[in-house]
Amino acid sequence: MRIEQLQHIIEINNKKSISEAAKTFFMGQPQLSHSVKNLEDELGYKIFRRNRAGLIPTCLGQEVISMAREITNSIEVLKSLAGGEANLTGNFSLILAPGVFNSFAGLLISRFHEKYPNVNLVLTEDIGIGLVDKVSTGACLMGVTVWTSNYDETMRKLLDEMDIAYEKIMQDDMCLIIGSNHPLAAKETISLAELEGMTIVDYRGRYRNSLRHCGIDTTKSELLIVSNREVMKAIIAKNQAVAVFPRCFFYNDQFFEQGLLKYCALEKITDQIKMEMYLIYSKTESLSHSAKQLKKILIDTIVDNCN
């Protein structure tokens, strides 16, 4: 029995699939299947069985996986005490909302691997309930999701019902993003009336309800729904549209650094609605030592670069 085999069955249990778990370890499905079979042969019983949902642990398999988590976590702590954090090993999957991914993924990977070079960190992105579902089902260890403050109570209730823990990372202003040469660009605050008749870019349709909630009559403005942030920024930079967006989603952005885009306060929106950013993870599984370190680096990376 090897530590790697314990890590293998933990990840298979998380992903409910050998093929998906194999991607985490950068190995082929046959190789991972062989590892599990060898462990089952050594133990003398099956760890997993298959149903419509995928691979699920047997009764004995559940006990093995629970013990495997305790063993791997204890080994992480021992390595940390004996040889420093750089000796920690493991595989972590983290899922980020698109704006968070674009602004912070590169910096997060750099910081994490500088401190934990032997830990494999896999970052993906998703949006809305898809992101929450991946954390709930164990497909990802942790996630960073965002919503506007008018949905805060609803989202907290949903996460509680799904046994998902949540920690607020930060709150940020919702502002009007506008081209630097736009006729309104010289103003510090723009009124809702001034948006009438303008084309408003709505990223993936996420902010339409927020606009209406704050009194923007969307029937008097054209809504352009886009799913690509770079396209959105190019449209705004050409003064063909404006958008309402959190400021932090454009951290280290070339359009802003080159002076093609700017932020303006937007009447009512900036004061009344905020962007809420939360770290989420399952309540049913305790975080390992190195997972807690990942959580700390993640929060520090975002907070440090938004202050």
Rank of each mutant, 00 (worst) to 15 (best):
E4K: 08
A22G: 02
Q29P: 07
H34A: 14
H34T: 14
S35N: 04
K37Y: 06
Y45P: 02
Y45F: 15
R50L: 12
R52T: 13
G54K: 03
Q62P: 02
M67T: 11
M67S: 15
I75E: 11
L78K: 14
G83T: 06
E85T: 13
N87T: 15
F92H: 06
S93K: 15
I95Q: 01
P98F: 08
N102V: 00
F104G: 01
L108C: 06
E125Q: 10
G128V: 03
V135D: 00
G138I: 05
A139K: 13
C140K: 09
V146Q: 13
D152I: 05
T154K: 10
L159A: 03
K168C: 04
N181H: 13
K187V: 00
E188S: 13
T189A: 02
S191G: 13
E194F: 03
M198P: 03
G215C: 06
V226T: 15
E230M: 12
E230I: 12
K233F: 14
A234F: 09
N239C: 14
C248I: 15
F250N: 15
Q254C: 03
Q254T: 14
K262Q: 14
K262T: 07
A265K: 14
M275W: 02
Y281H: 15
S282T: 10
K283W: 03
E285H: 08
D300C: 00
I302S: 01
N307E: 05
